[in-house]
Amino acid sequence: MKRLQAVLPIAAAAVLFVVVWKLIVVVGNYPVFILPAPEVVASRFVRAWADGIMTPHTITTLSEVLIGFGVGAALALVVGYLLARSRLAERLLSPYLVAAQATPILALAPLIALWFGTGLTGKVLICALIVFFPVAVSTMVGIRSVDRGLLELGRSLRATRWQIMAKLEISAALPQILGGMRVGVTLAVIGAIVGEWAGADSGLGVLINLARGSLFDIPLMFATLLTIALIGVSLYLVVVLIERRLVGAR
């Protein structure tokens, strides 16, 4: 019953979304190539998965996102920790970090494709870049806001520098770090798509271009968008689940 109560508003919102979408199509009398109706997209989505168009592109994009996120988040953890614990590191690195963040990835993507080719490397790099900032900043903030009392406790228990970092600081900063990762993982999906737009053989970004620019199959384009959205939501939920397990019971 309680579960039902939790799920009900989510289901209601989803239904409302689809109904409003359908209404817009009907009232506006939009042709399929401007705005396909939800059922058209749904059936194209099912067909695209059934006939195997979607699968290879999804695998490509998903691996770019996961590897890019892994690399970016891992580096961000290290740098975020350094920034929190070393004023020098902060003064040296933060201008570059902010500048990198302020540079639109859209402008950078073609250059990265030029330098690193249109394969996996360039995409991983773009995903890692885009993930880096939110995770590094949230790690820095999280580590800085660790209760000094806990650090003193660690020292009173003769914890090594490494133990203090692994067992106290990282654990204590985990809510913030995971918050940054939640943002980062959805950005990584965008990064992969942008990277694929700059040049790629395969991936959901390629499929969007293919559906829109070559096939003029707008329902397929929407079905691809739906797949991308589902990937984003799933990855977000995975981080939230991890967060619940590690942090939720505090």
Partner: peptide, 11 residues
Amino acid sequence: ISTYPDYGQLV
């Protein structure tokens, strides 16, 4: 065949 980002082919 290798793919190049737009305008990269000339280079």
